[in-house]
Every structure is written in C-alpha cells, then in structure tokens.
Design a protein around this nucleic acid. Structure first.
Lengths: 150, 150
DNA sequence: ACTGAAAGTGCGTGACC
DNA sequence: GGTCACGCACTTTCAGT
C-alpha cells in the first residue's frame, strides 16, 4: 500500500471537509484535479478511507447523557453474543472486548439519566451478563479521528 | 429546531454515504433536489450535521493497538489541564472527564504495543497524573454514529 | 507509472413561482 | 416545496514526461 506525504495532506483535508472539490484540494497540495481524484479513489480501494459521511452532534439530536459500561460476563461468553446484544440497542455507539477485569467496554448515548438507567437495565437483563459497572461522562475533552502520520 | 421523519431519513442516508447527490436523496425520500439541499443546509445551520468528513480505518493506517487509560489525577486538577496534555498527544483520539474512581478516561491508538507503552509513559509523566490504569481492546465489536431517532 | 489537459455529462446552487 | 437555468465539478479519455 502506497502512502506518501501528498496522500497524508489529502486525507487530512478530507477529514476536515470532504466536500472540497478535487481542484481545490489539488491547488493546496500541488496536483491537478484528476491526480487528486485518482489518489482518493486509490485510498478508498486500499481501505484507508472507509466512507464519506457526515459527523453528527449527539447533543443537537437530544442525546445529553453519555457513559461507559463495563460488562462482566459469565465464563466463556462468546464475543459474538455480546455483539448481538449491543447491536440490538440503538443507544450503544461503541463496544469492544477488553483485557483486564471486565470482559467488554460499551459506550452509551442516552436522552437523559432515566433513559440511561433503562439501557443499563436492558444490558443487565442479558443472560450472559453477571454484573455491570458504569461511569458517566462529565465533560468530553477531545474527540478526533485517527491521526494520519506515523 | 425542526426534526421530522424526512430529516431523519436524509441524515441516515448521508451518514451511510455523504456523496449521494441531492437528486438521488430526493427520489429516496420523495422530495426534489433543491428541497433536500435546503434541509441539509438547515441541518448544518442547526448544528445537527457538524461536518462532512471521511471515516478512516485505523488499522489501514498502521494503528493496530487500541486501549483505554483511566487517569487518576492530583486533587483539584482542572479539566483544561487534562485536555491540554491529551491534545499534545496525537495518539489520543478520545478523552473525557468521568464520574467514579478515575478522573478521566482516555482512548488511545498506537502502532504497536511498544508504542502504546511509550504513550502511557508520556501520560504518566504529566505533573497532575498520580497513576493510570489501562485496558487493551481485544476486538472491536461495534462502532457506529449516534442514532437519529428519538 | 503517474501526471496534466480537454471534453461531455451531471450536479450544486440560487432565483423565482 | 417545486421548477428552471447557469456555472462548476466530476469523470473519462488521451497524450506527455
């Protein structure tokens, strides 16, 4: 997979604003519009850029409460079971199996505290969940995409 | 702020692919191209859509190790200090102050385990950090944008 | 192999109904 | 919200280095 400073610049610019025209990107990195398009097509084909999308503001959508839930599961619970359970809850925006005491760490968005509690109860009601431990996000400090430089 | 089922459909479609044309979005939701554009402009002005961007694959960029670090800070450490420290580390992709025993929870991407350890040392070297506790992500199960329905 | 240039199609954009 | 018209962007093809 190729990756040179021009790719890095282009990706950085696209992360900031994916609607800039190829011509505009070209003048910023010193290439023609078609050369930029070819690189973007290659970056998509290589899987570096997985999608063109929009970033949403959870608060503007009414999600005011955010929290992390540690899942302690019954012995030999398969990750697929955890994934299935989380996929069924729209409030789960992030879930991973983790090392350490807990088996999985789940990030949740809820409309309010009562809603958060309800989601917590739904997770706890899953057969494979022995107990949960949750922390609430007080204030988000940083939220950014993966860095592009090595 | 207005929010009807058509807005929800449009936002959902844009999250999946923000390069669909307004005309194409229009045929899917039953509106004309300009009507869709007006709604998208309004959603941006209202702060629901915060940016048009690209989603990157950390693994394709060489970030193979992911982990969470709990920060235990000295008494009365201001959140701004935590933010400044995290902002200086490119490997920090997410940071929030949290309730519970720890003061902050930080998500980190690293090239490999040795790199992860180095980042951990840099965080620990901050004056306000008393100790850290970290967990490694074994396998990501779910990663999705905030839900659009209420 | 990768770049730049040109051409035709389709799209974004704004004014008007 | 729909329709229309203008200008620009995207996309492909072709040729140069």
């Amino acid at each position: 997979m190729r990756w040179d400073p021009l790719d890095e610049k282009i990706v950085t610019l696209l992360v900031a604003d994916s609607r800039r025209s190829f011509a505009e990107l070209g003048t910023e990195v010193g290439l023609s519009a078609s050369a930029v398009k070819r690189r973007v097509d290659r970056l998509r084909a290589d899987g570096v850029i997985t999608a063109f999308t929009v970033r949403l503001d959870p608060a503007a959508l009414g999600w005011t409460v955010e929290g992390y839930v540690e899942l302690y599961c019954r012995p030999s619970t398969p990750p697929a079971a955890i994934r299935r359970a989380c996929a069924g809850l729209a409030e789960v925006v992030d879930a991973s199996t983790v090392s350490g005491d807990a088996d999985a760490l789940v990030r949740i968005l809820a409309a309010d505290m009562r809603h958060f509690e309800q989601v917590l109860e739904q997770i706890g009601a899953e057969g494979f969940v022995e107990r949960t431990k949750s922390v609430l996000v007080l204030s988000p400090l940083i939220r950014r995409p993966p860095p592009t430089m090595h």
